[in-house]
Design a binder for these strands. Structure first.
Length: 894
RNA sequence: GCGGACGUGGCGGAACUGGUAGACGCAAGGGACUUAAAAUCCCUCGGAGAAAUCCGUGCGGGUUCGAUCCCCGCCGUCCGCACCA
């Protein structure tokens, strides 16, 4: 049955359930009544507001804040539930917890909505926020709403403009003309990170290359630091650390200056500088290749019409990044020749080639066909020499050849004069050493150089709904920053969205200002900032959301770094790298005193759901489908038509595939606790979880089961003083409770929520019997039961906070569970005096041995050899060996 | 092409540092209660076998008293980067 088909019927509301004894009739737990009640109680007690003047140790847990798209998605709720479990647990452990929430509220969907629905982006955004805030509140999240802000609040972007000006003063902002990724549909510039397979990440349109003057943050100033500091991020997933390392892309090589021959050099040119990571292969060089934008290529084209035509053709074909990736490797011989740095008699042709990138290295390469497949293809196409210079160890230099497949691995040098016989690593050093001391025009020919793949961060966006860049263009003074006292630069309200492009550009008055320097007529910068800027420091603003400056330094230093940050893997590079840069830039400008914003990072999996498709190809929502189980086969039927539906793969919930289940539906049917519990059970939090109605129903059964267990035990334990029992029958109550208490705490610390949940299930299974048979006379059992129930309530509280409060009230607990301390386990109760040791014979388990926990090795060995099945296996012979792993296992080798 | 992760019952998964493989949940089957249903409770649930027992963590080897875990070689799935010189 689908969830929505169940909707309405739902679980019985407050029906009375008849138990064996009518006097014990237990009302079903009704989340629809309980959950709002406890949410109100928490809010009134202001339990989740983090105090600045609190001596307890701080703990900052943060989930990536949502974009206010309109409704909370189920993926959000899983993310926030994880953070909430941590927040509630840490609070119970005595930490002063900061767990804030805000809105990543600038961005294009608001403008798209404005264009489609004639609604102002501001109105659309704040309306969405209001809806989504209510939805989040229904989840029972322990958030500090007093710190809430949206990045489109003028109070927030005002401070962001302050930061921009500070960064500018510090030299961390530049304006440069550069080739940018232009999205022709959204009419805006995209960062490299926003181009996926040559297409805009949002519009899906093929991205074009354009030359534009843009504002950049100089993230490359921190390339080395951002890379090396990754080693210190011990509580980050290895996967993310690796992705960041690859993205920064450090390589060590040599830059080499090649002299042009005098007779072929264009006027005023005398050399080409190339960057290589393989200087060892320099004797395998057979051509040079320049990017089409390389200054020398441009110069040569001035006097060479055919070359100019070639460059123009490449530019035309190569306007989109997608085309670049599939384009054939093509080159054009410029006629220019260079001299080999180790042999002035040896000259090489200089080509202009469409595959050389101006943005990386120096925009020029030397081609070594034998060591690089792309160079080999190029050489074969244009009939250039192929000289093998590196061969696998053990190969014969006399016969080793390269024809169709290049050899790019490590090996031994050949055909390389003074390098022959060296390893390529030795040859690298030798070439570097010699070229560093050789000179050309009075300067060294070669220089060791570290290169990075990372580019500066272009932040200009030709959009309205973003943070205005506080700069002014004066015809006389040039670029002039807006004086800080003139901030904020507010977005105008009266804008139109009837055309694509930037409404700020065509606003009648907004852009016209007087120059702060000369007082003359000047123009405002109409670009706004990339929304990734907004999310690069919001975590710092939460520490002091109402501070006059961007941060209150004392507060931010106190709370940061974020102890546990939780979000999707899709932000492994962009958002996290930008935030790491921003933190450093804010340190450099005196806004805080730390390097790394996020101490612990956790990337959670998605919530996925089956997809349903009708015979005529329509996607069907789960609520439109009934799934039946017939002869062990699952069958889906469209409710409206009765037609059979194809059950498709598990996919991320999406509007297009219609495989969504909304948080409201779930809360309506089962309550927030059930949703929270289900989303964290079964699947490990870093993996995807499949939303199934059966699973949700199972979680709800458990909610009711806990409620029944506690409320049925309540009469027997009300007014009883909790007391653990170490011996006797009551120990069967205390021991599992304390063991679970220890294990669940450890599991939450490790974010192993699925394991914690399994442990709680076990505890309930173990308590079921003893608690249902509680006699009035047995004081020890009642005291132990009281304590075990209190422990159980504390264990479920981070996951199912409303149910925990209801249970707590039921047994007459004082105050709120949300405000109470996590109980301490008794170490004496989590170990048993007698243990059951598995006994193996030749590595296979053949039986058990029950023995005192502290029995020494000899005693264990003796007892094992006395066991019937051991003696039988040995057949009277002495064992060859007996391995006793203390408190683990015994292995008898026969 | 480069880099990485993963592969365990019908399903999601557990198994800590090399020490009882399958915890816990879901699904399924059987039973109890009920006029009936729902709810609840009990039992079964990797494969073969009547049982003893044997086999079993993608496949093939290896190390070890002992391997889901470590090593070597394959196969498969997923992810990231990708003309990076």
């Amino acid at each position: 049955m689908t969830l929505a088909a169940n909707h309405g019927e739902g679980p019985p509301e407050t029906s009375l359930l008849l138990c064996e004894d009518p006097a014990m009739a237990t009302e079903r737990y009704n989340p629809r009544v309980s959950e709002p009640r406890w949410q109100k109680a928490w809010e009134e007690a202001r339990l989740f507001e983090a105090a600045q003047d609190d001596a307890r140790p701080t703990y900052y847990v943060l989930e990536m804040f949502p974009y206010p798209s309109g409704r909370i998605h189920i993926g959000h709720t899983r993310n926030y539930t994880m953070g909430d479990v941590v927040a509630r647990y840490k609070r119970a452990k005595g930490f002063n917890v900061l767990h804030p929430m805000g809105w990543d509220a600038f961005g294009m969907p608001a403008e798209n909505a404005a264009m489609q629905n004639k609604v102002h982006p501001r109105e659309w955004t704040y309306q969405n926020i209001s809806v989504m805030r209510d939805q989040l509140k229904m989840m029972g999240l322990s958030l500090d709403w007093s710190r809430e802000f949206a990045t489109c609040d003028v109070e927030y972007y005002h401070r962001q403009q302050m930061l921009f000006l500070d960064f500018y003063e510090k030299g961390l902002v530049t304006r440069k003309t550069s080739k940018v990724n232009w999205d022709p549909v959204d009419q805006t510039v995209l960062a490299n990170e926003q181009v996926i397979d040559g297409r805009g990440w949002r519009s899906g349109a093929e991205v074009e290359q354009r030359e534009l003057a843009q504002w950049f943050f100089k993230i490359t100033d921190y390339s080395e630091e951002l890379l090396s500091a990754i080693d210190g991020l011990k509580d980050w997933p290895e996967k993310v650390r690796l992705m960041q390392r690859n993205w920064i892309g450090r390589s060590e090589g040599l830059s080499i200056r090649w002299a042009l021959t005098e007779e072929t050099a264009p006027a005023g040119e005398s050399e080409i500088e190339v960057y290589t990571t393989r200087p060892d292969t320099i004797f395998g060089a057979s051509f040079m290749a320049l990017a089409i934008d390389h200054p020398l290529a441009k110069k040569a084209a001035q006097t060479n019409a055919a070359l100019a035509a070639f460059i123009e053709e490449c530019r035309r074909i190569g306007t989109s990044a997608a085309a670049l990736e599939t384009a054939e490797k093509k080159g054009f011989d410029t006629g220019i020749r260079v001299r080999h740095p180790f042999d002035p008699e040896w000259t090489l042709p200089v080509y202009v080639a469409n595959f050389v990138l101006m943005e990386y290295g120096t925009g020029a390469i030397f081609g070594c066909p034998s060591g690089d497949q792309r160079d080999l293809d190029f050489a074969n196409k244009y009939g250039l020499p192929v000289i093998p210079v590196v061969m696998p160890e053990g190969a014969d230099p006399a016969t080793f050849q390269i024809t169709e497949e290049a050899y790019g691995d490590d090996g031994i040098m050949l055909n390389s004069r003074f390098l022959d016989g060296m390893t390529n690593a030795q040859a690298f050093e030798e070439v570097a050493r010699r070229l560093e001391t050789a000179t050309l025009a009075g300067r060294p020919v070669g220089a060791r150089k570290v290169n990075f793949r990372l580019r500066d961060w272009g932040i200009s966006r030709q959009r309205y709904w973003g943070c205005p860049i506080p700069m002014i263009h004066c015809p006389d003074c040039g670029i002039v920053p807006v004086p800080k006292e003139d901030l904020p630069v507010r977005l105008p309200d009266d804008v139109s969205f009837d055309r694509p492009g930037n409404p700020l550009d065509r606003h009648p008055t907004w852009r016209h200002v007087t120059c702060p320097k000369c007082g003359g007529a000047a123009q405002r910068e109409t670009d706004t900032m990339d929304t990734f800027v907004d999310s690069s420091w919001y975590f710092a603003r939460f520490a002091s959301p109402h501070a006059e400056g961007p941060t209150d330094r004392e507060a931010v230093n106190r709370w940061l770094p974020v102890d546990q940050y939780i979000g999707g893997i899709e932000h492994a590079i962009l958002h996290l790298l930008y935030s790491r840069f921003f933190t450093r830039a804010m340190r450099a400008t005196g806004h805080l005193d730390l390097d790394e914003p996020f101490k612990g990072l956790f990337t959670q999996g998605m919530v996925v759901h089956e997809t349903y498709r009708s015979a005529d190809g329509r996607w069907l929502a789960p609520s439109e489908v009934r799934v039946e189980n017939a002869d062990g086969q699952r069958k889906a039927v469209e409710i409206a038509t009765g037609e059979t539906v194809t059950i498709g793969a598990l996919e991320k919930m999406s509007k297009s595939k219609r495989n969504t289940v909304s948080p409201e539906e779930i809360i309506d049917s089962f309550g927030a606790d059930t949703a929270r519990w289900f989303m964290l059970s079964d699947s490990p939090p870093d993996r995807d979880v499949e939303w199934t109605d059966d699973g949700a129903a199972g979680a709800h059964r458990f909610v009711q089961r806990v409620w029944r267990l506690v409320s049925e035990a309540a009469p027997a334990i009300a007014g009883t003083v909790p007391q653990a029992a170490k011996t006797g029958a009551a120990a069967a109550i205390s021991k599992p409770a304390h063991k679970a208490l220890k294990a669940v705490g450890e599991d939450i610390e490790r974010l192993a929520f699925n394991r914690a949940i399994a442990r709680i299930h076990e505890l309930v299974n173990e308590l079921q019997g003893p608690l249902s048979g509680l006699g009035a006379g047995d004081d020890a059992a009642r005291a132990a039961a009281r304590q075990a129930v209190e422990i159980l309530i504390h264990l479920i509280a981070p996951f199912m906070p409303h149910l925990a409060e209801e249970c707590w009230a039921k047994i007459g607990g004082e105050g709120l569970v949300a405000a109470s301390r996590w109980p301490d386990f008794d170490p004496g109760l989590v170990v048993d005096n007698e243990i059951v040791l598995p006994v193996q014979i030749n590595g296979k388990k053949r039986g058990d041995l029950t023995i005192a926990r502290d029995a020494d090795q000899a005693a264990v060995e003796e007892a094992v050899l006395g066991l019937d099945f051991v003696q039988k296996a040995l057949g009277g012979a002495a064992p060859r060996k007996v391995i006793v792993v203390p408190q683990r296992i015994v292995n008898v080798v026969a």
